[in-house]
Design a protein around this nucleic acid. Structure first.
Lengths: 336, 336
DNA sequence: AGCTCTTGACAAAACGTTTTGGCTATGGAT
DNA sequence: ATCCATAGCCAAAACGTTTTGTCAAGAGCT
C-alpha cells in the first residue's frame, strides 16, 4: 500500500512551491503558462488528487449534499416508498456526481439527529409548511432547495423546484369529466405539503363549480396500497358512491383499484381511477393506470443544479417549474 | 450566523486542555470521572460536534461509505432499475446512518472517475468476476464488501454477503416441475456475476438430470421488460416451445408474461412464469408473479454491518448467507 | 535615473482535530 | 528513605489543504 501523493509531492516534482500548485490546480492567483503546464504534468504523473478532508477543513466546504423527505408527525414518508421519489433522487444524483459532489440519501430514521457538519446543502422533498428543519439548516449556513414549496415562507424567499399542481389536478379532473365522471373522489396524503394543499383546494373549488359534492380523504399511515384500499371501501359504504377516484400517488391508486374490484365493480366501467404520480407498476397493472407524469427525474436534476449553483455562489435562474403530462391509459377511458 | 464551537472552546469552558476534551469524547487515554463529567457538560452546553473534516484529516477516516453496482462492458445496471437493488440500498443506508456513516449511492455514470478520496468503504453489488475496481479500491486501502461473490478471488479472500443461489434456482425448478412443466426456459443477465454463473450452471445440470433440453438466453442491454419481451417471442419461434420460463429478475418476468399473452397464450395455463427477484409490481401484475424473495433488505443490512465492522477494525462474523423464500403466486400455479 | 505598476512566485499562517510523548503527583513496595 | 508504577493531565506536532501577505524582477512612464 503506497501513500497518496500530497500537494507537497507535486510541488517537489514540478520544482515549485505548494502555493503555486494550489493556485494552478484551482485557477486562483497568477501563474505563467509554462509553469502551469509543468505543475499539471507533475500532478497527472503522480495521480494527485487533493484531499477533500484537508480542503474542507480550510475552506469549510464539504462537497457533500443530502436529499431527504420532510417529516411530519402525522406522516412518515420514506424516499424508497414511491418510484416518484426514487426518480428525483436519481436525477439529483446524476447532477451532483457530474459536479463533483457526493449525494447522501437520508431515510427518515436517519434524519433525526444527523450531525449536518458534513453537508453543504440539502434537497428537501415536499417540505411541510414551516418545517423547522429549514430554519435549523439555514442557521447552520446550509443551503436548502425544496421540491415543492414551503408555503410558510414569504414569496421570493426560499429556493424551490416544483410542478404546477393546480394545472395538474385540473388536467385530471377535466379528463375524468370528459370520460363520464359525475362524482369524483380524492384520496390524498395528510400533512401540510404544498402539493396536497393546492390539490385539495383546487379540487374543492372545482367541485363547487361543477356541482359535485367533495369527497376527499387524507390517508395517514404511509404511502401504500392497503391504506387506500380501506379508504376506498369506506368511500363506497356511504350513501353517495363515487364514479371516479383520483389518488395522489400511484400506490394509492393501486389500492383503490383493488378495493373497487373487491366490491364486484370494475375499473373503468363502474369507477374511473387516476393517479397523481406515474410508475412502472402503474403501467403494468390491469387496467393500466392513467397517471400524471410529473417528470420527477427533471425535478431532481433542477433541484440539484439550483442547490449547487447556490452553494458555489454562481448566478442561477432561480426557482423552476417542471411541466406535467397526463398519461392517459385504460383505468379512466373506454367506459362508454 | 454564529461560528461553530471548536474543541478549544469546549476546553476553555471546562477548564482543561484540548487533549483532555478529545480523550474524553473519544474514550481514549485516562481521565478522572469528575473531569469527564465537566467536559461532557461543557460540550453539551455549547452544542459541540467535532468537525468531520478536521477529524478525517488527522485520522484519515472519512465516515463515508458508498454503494454501487458492478459495471460490465456488456451490461450497464443502474441501482434504481430494480426494486431488489433499492431494498439493498435501503437496508445498507439504515445501518450506515445508525453507525454514524453517510452512504452515497453511486449511479453508473458517476462511478467512472470518482475520486474515492472521501470513502472509507464500498459495498459493491454483484461484482463481475475479477472486477478491476476491487483491486483498485484495495490498493487505495478502501474496504470492499460485495453482495454476491467475486468468483475470481481465492476462497477466504474478500468479504461478501450473498444468497444461496444454487438452492434458489433449484427451489424454482422443482416448483415448476411439480406444477407440470416439461420444458423450462431461462432468461438471465449477461455478465460474469456469481449469481448468473451459479444459476446457469445449476440450471443446465438440472436439465440434464431431468431430461430437459436447456433453453437459456442472456439478455444484454438493460434490465427491463422490453428486452425480455423480445427474447420470449424468439424462444417461442423455435421448433420446441417452453411451457415454463424462469426469469432472473421480476422485470424480465413481466416482459415474458406480456410476450406470452401477445401470442394468444395465457399464463399460467400455457406457460408458467417465475421471477428470481420479488417486488411490489410482481405482486400486482395479473396473474401475480411467483418470485424468489431474496430478502434484499437484509442483504443490505448485513453488507453494511460487515463493511463498517471491517473499517473500524472490529471483530466480525465474516461472510453471510441470506436465506431465500419462494413466494408462490398465480403465475406458476393452478394450471391443472 | 527614479518612480510606479504588474507579473509571477513563495513562505507562513490558519483550518480543527487526534496522537505522541512527557510531566507531576500519589501511593505502594522494597 | 528510596524506587517504581500508575493515574491524570497537558503541550506540541502532525494531518494536507487554501489563503494572506510579501517580495523580486522587469516593464513602462516621466
Amino acid at each position: 500500500m503506497v501513500k497518496r501523493p500530497t500537494i507537497r509531492d507535486v510541488a517537489a516534482a514540478a520544482g515549485v512551491s505548494v502555493t503555486t500548485v494550489s493556485h494552478t490546480l484551482n485557477g486562483k492567483g497568477r501563474i505563467d503558462a509554462e509553469t502551469a503546464r509543468k505543475v499539471r504534468a507533475a500532478a497527472d504523473q503522480l495521480g494527485y488528487r487533493a484531499s477533500t478532508a484537508a480542503r474542507s477543513l480550510q475552506s469549510s466546504r464539504t462537497g457533500q449534499v443530502a436529499i431527504l423527505h420532510s417529516r411530519s408527525s402525522a406522516h412518515q414518508v420514506s424516499l424508497i416508498e414511491l418510484e416518484y421519489f426514487i426518480q428525483i433522487v436519481a436525477g439529483a444524483s446524476s447532477i451532483a456526481a457530474a459536479r463533483g459532489y457526493h449525494l447522501t440519501m437520508m431515510l427518515p430514521a436517519n434524519t433525526h439527529d444527523s450531525d449536518w457538519t458534513r453537508t453543504d446543502g440539502v434537497i428537501l422533498i415536499d417540505p411541510i409548511s414551516g418545517d423547522p428543519l429549514i430554519n435549523e439548516l439555514k442557521r447552520k449556513n446550509i443551503v436548502v432547495v425544496t421540491t415543492g414549496r414551503d408555503t410558510n415562507q414569504k414569496a421570493g424567499e426560499g429556493l424551490w423546484v416544483d410542478n404546477d399542481n393546480v394545472q395538474a389536478i385540473l388536467l385530471v379532473l377535466n379528463h375524468l369529466v370528459e370520460n363520464g365522471a359525475t362524482q369524483v373522489a380524492l384520496l390524498t396524503t395528510p400533512g401540510d405539503y404544498s402539493y396536497s394543499r393546492e390539490t385539495l383546494q383546487t379540487y374543492r373549488e372545482w367541485c363547487a363549480q361543477h356541482g359535485q359534492s367533495p369527497m376527499d380523504r387524507q390517508l395517514a399511515g404511509g404511502i401504500n396500497e392497503t391504506i387506500a384500499y380501506h379508504a376506498t371501501l369506506e368511500l363506497f359504504s356511504g350513501p353517495t358512491k363515487p364514479d371516479a377516484i383520483h389518488c395522489v400517488t400511484d400506490r394509492y391508486a393501486m389500492g383503490a383499484m383493488m378495493a373497487v374490484e373487491s366490491l364486484g365493480l370494475s375499473v373503468p366501467q363502474d369507477c374511473l381511477i387516476t393517479a397523481g404520480t406515474d410508475s412502472g407498476a402503474a403501467r403494468l397493472v390491469v387496467p393500466p393506470l392513467t397517471a400524471l407524469d410529473l417528470h420527477p427525474n427533471e425535478v431532481g436534476i433542477n433541484a440539484a443544479k439550483l442547490l449547487i449553483d447556490e452553494i458555489e455562489g454562481h448566478k442561477h435562474e432561480g426557482n423552476h417549474v417542471v411541466p406535467v403530462d397526463l398519461q392517459i391509459r385504460g383505468s379512466s377511458t373506454g367506459t362508454k
